[in-house]
């Protein structure tokens, strides 16, 4: 069905855009905490959109379930690891970037 294919294509394009944005943010953001946002949020949205695009083309219901499980797992992992890294960094005294510090 071309409609589903078109939707899938659009989702894939959006997913790629988020991935590129997340990677660019990782490079350009000024400190660890901001970069954590980039990696764990933007990339996850990109992944989710990509998974959705693939799910529309999946061969079986089991595949769709697995794709959903991948996304849930990555979400849980990213959110927790993001917090753990930020907490540990804060504990070690990494100071957030402020505009006056340039």
């Amino acid at each position: 069905m071309p409609v589903i294919e078109a939707i899938s294509l659009a989702l894939l394009a959006a997913g790629l855009a988020f991935f590129i944005a997340g990677t660019a943010a990782l490079v350009r953001f000024p400190d660890l905490y901001c970069r954590l946002h980039a990696v764990t949020k933007a990339d996850n949205v990109g992944l989710g959109l990509t998974l959705f695009a693939l799910a529309l083309r999946a061969d079986s219901a089991l595949d769709v379930v697995k794709l959903g499980l991948i996304w849930v797992t990555v979400l849980i992992a990213s959110a927790s690891v993001c917090y753990l890294i930020a907490n540990e960094a804060h504990r070690r005294g990494v100071r957030p970037w402020t505009r006056t510090r340039t």
Binding site: I76, A77, S80, V81, Y83, L84, N87
Partner: peptide
């Protein structure tokens, strides 16, 4: 003392 880790 690490509820986030426990949840994970």
């Amino acid at each position: 003392r690490s509820p986030m880790l426990a949840m994970l």
